[in-house]
Each structure stands twice: as C-alpha cells, then as structure tokens.
Amino acid sequence: MQPIRDKDFDQLFKDAFAEAEVTPSRDLWSSIESEIIPKKKRIIPIYWLSAAAVLLIATIGILLYQQQNTTDEHKQLASNIIEKTKSEVHEPVAKDTAKVVENVVPVLPVRSKAVSAIAKTKVKQDVKPALEQQQIITAPEMQKQETTVAKVEEPKKDIKTKIEEAILQPKEETVIVASPTAAKTDEPINDNEQSNKGIRNVGDVVNLIVNKMDKRKDKLIQFRTDDDDSSLSSINIGPFKIGKRNKK
C-alpha cells in the first residue's frame, strides 16, 4: 500500500463527515426549550424597571426636599407668590396691553414710547402689585395661597379696565418700570407652565427633568408645585395613569 497523500487523506474525512449524524442521547430539547422561554418573559420586567425608577426619583426627591426645607425657612414664600401670580396672568395681559396700546397710541401720541415700554415689561406687574402685594406680604402663610391664586383669576376678566386705569396713571407706571423687579419679569414664556415659575423645590427639579425627557401631555411623573410644598400630582407609566394634570 502507498503512503497516502494529504489531499486524499483530507477527502476521506470530508466524505466520512459530510452526512454524518449522531443522535443526541440526552433529552436536549427540553433543556433548550427551558432556556428559550425566559427570553420571552423578560419583556415584563421593563414595567418593573420603570416603576422602580419612578420610586427612586420620588425617594431622592423627598429626601432632598426635606433637606432643603430645613434650611429655607419659608423666606422665599412671598416672592414666590408674586412670581407665580405674574406668570399666571402673563399671556393674556401681554396681548391685551398690546391691543390697548394700539388703541391708546393715536389718542396719546406723546406717551407712546412709555406705554410700549410698559407693554414689553408685561404690564400685569402694574396691575398686580397694587392689589395683591399687600395681601401677600401681610399673609405669607401657605394656607392663604389659594385665596391669592383665586384672586389672580378675577383680575383677568376686567384686565382691560385695569390696564386702562394703569395707562391713565402713567406716573406710577414709570416708577415701576424703573424699579429693579421689572427686569425679572422679562422671562421668556414657555409652553410648560412649570418652567416659567423657576425652580423652587425638588418637585420643580423633577418636573423639569421629566419635561425634558417626556414630551407627552401626561408626563411620566408630575409634581404639583403651586404651593411651596411639592406633592405628587400624576404618574403615567404606559397603561398606569394616576391623576391628571390640573390645568386651569
């Protein structure tokens, strides 16, 4: 017999294994099956994951808030309320003043510059302080907040008349425009009512983050921050919705 060439030697193996079959001895299929099944069930824990994330955010929020609460001592309360009332009347006042300004300009051409300047700095400032600031300063307790908020609604209705009043009293206006608080009011108006109130507590922080990530109307998690105390107002995790955004 001749020594075999590599090529033939390889071919021998190739042929032998081309159609080779070895029947599995163990019941392999059942173990394979049991390995495949858990893959399908892994979809469910995503809900658990999001629920856990919400819980985590909430706990961190509460902890941070408690810390902040001890240092803050409610000193910001009065200014907070002012800011808030301002922002609530923001848009309507701006529009109305714009209209009024148009009407007024031809009547009082000399004062047009002053009036337009006031319009830019949002006249509601002038409308509000006279009526509300006193109340706010004398009654800074949280309980009174709702009453102040309620009163904010009222002025809206007869805003025109008040603006007219304001325009008729130009001396007061100019003083307020010149005051340093006027600059503050020039903040840009955002779609989200939360963001133009500024960040006062942890609820605001969470809302801000959630707003950035979640563009739905009902957010993943939403804190009510109208009062200085942030409280959970709504949760929206897929099928689970708790609470609705309390819109005006």
């Binding site: 294994f17 080779a20 079959e21 070895v22 029947t23 599995p24 001895s25 392999l28 299929w29």
Partner: peptide, 24 residues
C-alpha cells in the same frame, strides 16, 4: 437537524458530553 449538528459538534469536542453542551 439535531443529529447532523451533533455530529458537527462531536468533531470539535473531546467527548459526547461536551458536544451536547455545545449543541445546546
């Protein structure tokens, strides 16, 4: 296909046990 594939695995393994693990 398992029988054919086990034959493939057997070639690469030291023994049947190892081959069946690879098959799985």
């Amino acid at each position: 296909t398992a029988a054919k594939m086990l034959a493939v695995c057997m070639r690469y393994a030291r023994d049947r046990m190892e081959a069946e693990d690879v098959l799985q």
